[in-house]
Design a protein around this nucleic acid. Structure first.
Length: 603
DNA sequence: AATGAATGTCATGCT
DNA sequence: CAAGCATGACATTCA
């Protein structure tokens, strides 16, 4: 028996199968390993080229952002003026592109083109005209404005930004956020960011807590801040993190945060940068999870009011500002539909304005600031999650309607508040302090209960008092040792708040009822008109039919003849039909008589 | 200054 | 019975 070499046999079989497949329409290249390998290499080459192209676009975009600065008045990005001498780009990767021999104008034009191209190609966000809007809404402008702030002026730390805006921004620009995430996932960008981050962390960061806080902001915030960093002086760069917090942070917390700085250095590698911006970092994730689990049982009743957890939500639960996150969860969500304390200030979409307050204070903002400035040990679940403590000695920092500006302008604000108090006590509010009367009115309204609560040292916010479920509210009241006056005030605040919402709903319902009735009235009018038209049409038809009947009647009469062949007069005879259908010709004599009788009797 | 709209607050009844 | 809701009536603020 002949022994065939196995491989030879296999090759023969493959050849047979191949011929069969050719008959079926498949080409040999499909099965050719070398051919497939070539194709694979070609594909890889294309991918590499694509990668290179994206990288160059990225570089151009970074360069562009370094060349641009935010015009705080128009909200537009404009070319940055030529930097001062000491402002040398600290980031090495950008030096290559910046020293390429282009004039500033050429480079700006090129960069602008590249920018538009990037927006059109890299981001699959949408049309280019929507992009600037999104950029305007991004917190990047806050970072840029912080960079642009003169060093001698206290730079607002991220902790003083109105954090309540952030989830909103997150919601309003999900596509852009996703695009940023995609960008960040590019290895080249991660490498670049990593280099810059290493530079950043090698500075003597005296206020390291802010570094940690910084990571709580949307990814675009930090990345854009970084993109601007090449033009930023080291001092200013540090100023981005150099906030007033150390002056208000409790020493133990400060030490604790400081102790985490080495961890940050470790975790600031390229792979975990995305995770740092979003809370998948093991460091934060564990703590977030812990906190989330810890508070879940008490948070849950309120959570359904809010959209499902976003990464920012998880971030908010991280240890650095867990109270902020909780407060956002629990206070913003009811505002969405209740409108009681809708913190939507007209400036909410303009971070550059809101950084310095510009008179647009919101309750939540002040509470956030309060929470930042009053980190407290856990007295109870709710005191940790919701409360502000109105400490008598931090009056100007914790006052509800004026605390946004933070420690940078404490005296002005406390004086404003004192004047506001005086105005309220005297019962009238001339408005020398506020530009927006509507806003002022809103704030004054809000601050009445706030003021009362503060006067009695109620350790909760009015939103907390109003929006807590009754069980949680009762539990909270029982845990706090409140005196009679405080309890009464808290109940009044809750009752007023509930009733306010009820009144709003009632009026809304009333308006809807009125609109519904108006619609119904319109439809009824139309129905009436239609029926009247139908009635007149019917009457017209009836008249025509009567005329036809009359003519037919006369026609029949003219055809009737007596024995002599004379016609019957319709005035003397009438035709009547009996029940069995027989038609009789009856003289009208009786009727004539009766009419004569009637006539004689009436006369 | 008068006026109407919008909104907050209170009283009351109902669930 | 307490809590909350609905709603009419009144008060306040503002344009």
């Amino acid at each position: 028996m002949e022994v065939i070499h196995p491989s030879h046999q296999n090759m023969d079989q493959i050849d047979i199968l191949w011929h069969q497949d050719i008959d079926l329409g498949a080409r040999r290249e499909v099965f050719d390993y070398n051919h497939r390998q070539k194709e694979h290499e070609l594909r890889r080459q294309r991918e590499l080229e694509e990668e290179k192209r994206r990288h160059s676009l990225l570089e151009q975009q970074k360069l562009l952002l370094a060349q641009l600065q935010l015009d705080e008045e128009t909200g537009e990005y404009i070319p940055r003026p030529p930097p001062a001498a000491p402002l040398q780009p600290p980031a090495a990767p950008l030096e290559v592109t910046q020293n390429d021999g282009f004039s500033v104008e050429d480079r700006d034009a090129m960069v602008l083109d590249a920018y538009l191209q990037i927006l059109a190609e890299t981001f699959s966000v949408g049309s280019t005209e929507s992009s600037p809007v999104c950029f305007d809404n991004l917190p990047v402008s806050t970072a840029v404005s912080s960079i642009m702030t003169p060093p001698e002026q206290p730079v607002l730390s991220p902790a003083t930004f109105p954090p309540s805006q952030l989830p909103q921004l997150q919601r309003t620009t999900p596509d852009l956020e996703q695009a940023w995430m995609e960008l960040l996932s590019l290895p080249e960008l991660q490498q670049c960011l990593n280099m810059q981050m290493e530079e950043m962390t090698t500075y003597p960061v005296s206020n390291s807590p802010e570094v940690q806080n910084y990571s709580f902001y949307p990814v675009s915030d930090l990345t854009d801040a970084k993109r601007n960093s090449p033009k930023v002086d080291a001092t200013e760069f540090i100023n981005m993190f150099d906030g007033p917090v150390p002056s208000v942070a409790l020493p133990n917390e400060f030490d604790q945060m400081k102790a985490e700085v080495p961890q940050l250095n470790v975790t600031f590698n390229a792979e975990s940068l995305c995770d740092m911006f979003y809370p998948n970092t093991p460091l934060e994730e564990t703590s977030c999870q812990q906190d989330f689990e810890g508070n879940k049982s008490t948070i849950m009743p309120e959570i359904p009011n809010k959209a499902p957890f976003t990464p920012m939500d998880m971030c908010s639960l991280s240890p650095g500002d867990e109270s902020d996150g909780d407060k956002q969860n629990l206070e913003e969500a009811p505002d969405l539909d209740s409108g009681i304390s809708s913190n939507a200030s007209p400036n909410a979409s303009s971070p550059a304005k809101s950084v310095y307050g510009s008179g647009s204070f919101s309750n939540s903002d002040s509470e956030m600031t309060d929470m930042d400035h009053n980190p407290r040990s856990a007295e109870s679940d709710y005191s940790e999650m919701f409360s502000i403590n109105f400490e008598p000695d931090d009056f100007d920092l914790t006052a509800p309607a004026y605390a946004l500006t933070g420690p940078s302008q404490p005296n002005e604000e406390s004086h404003k508040q004192l004047r506001l108090d005086l105005a309220e006590d005297s019962g009238h509010h001339d408005a020398p302090f506020t530009k927006d009367k509507q806003k002022k009115r809103f704030d004054v309204r809000l601050s009445r209960d706030e003021q009362k609560a503060k006067a009695l040292n109620i350790p909760f916010t009015v939103d907390t008092i109003i929006n807590l479920p009754v069980d949680d509210f009762s539990e909270l009241m029982s845990k706090q040792q409140l005196n009679e006056a405080q309890l009464n005030l808290v109940r009044d605040i809750r009752r007023r708040g509930k009733n306010k919402v009820a009144a709003q709903n009632c009026r809304k319902r009333k308006m809807e009822n009125i609109c519904g009735l108006e619609t119904e009235l319109d439809s009824l009018k139309e129905e009436k008109e239609r029926l009247q038209n139908e009635k007149s049409q019917n009457m017209k038809t009836m008249k025509e039919m009567k005329q036809q009947l009359n003519s037919l009647y006369l026609e029949v009469f003219t055809m009737l003849k007596d024995e002599k062949g004379n016609s019957y007069s319709p005035s003397e005879y009438s035709l009547q039909q009996s029940t069995d259908g027989t038609v009789f010709l009856l003289p009208r004599i009786k009727k004539t008589f009766r009419s004569v009788d009637n006539h004689s009797s009436t006369s």
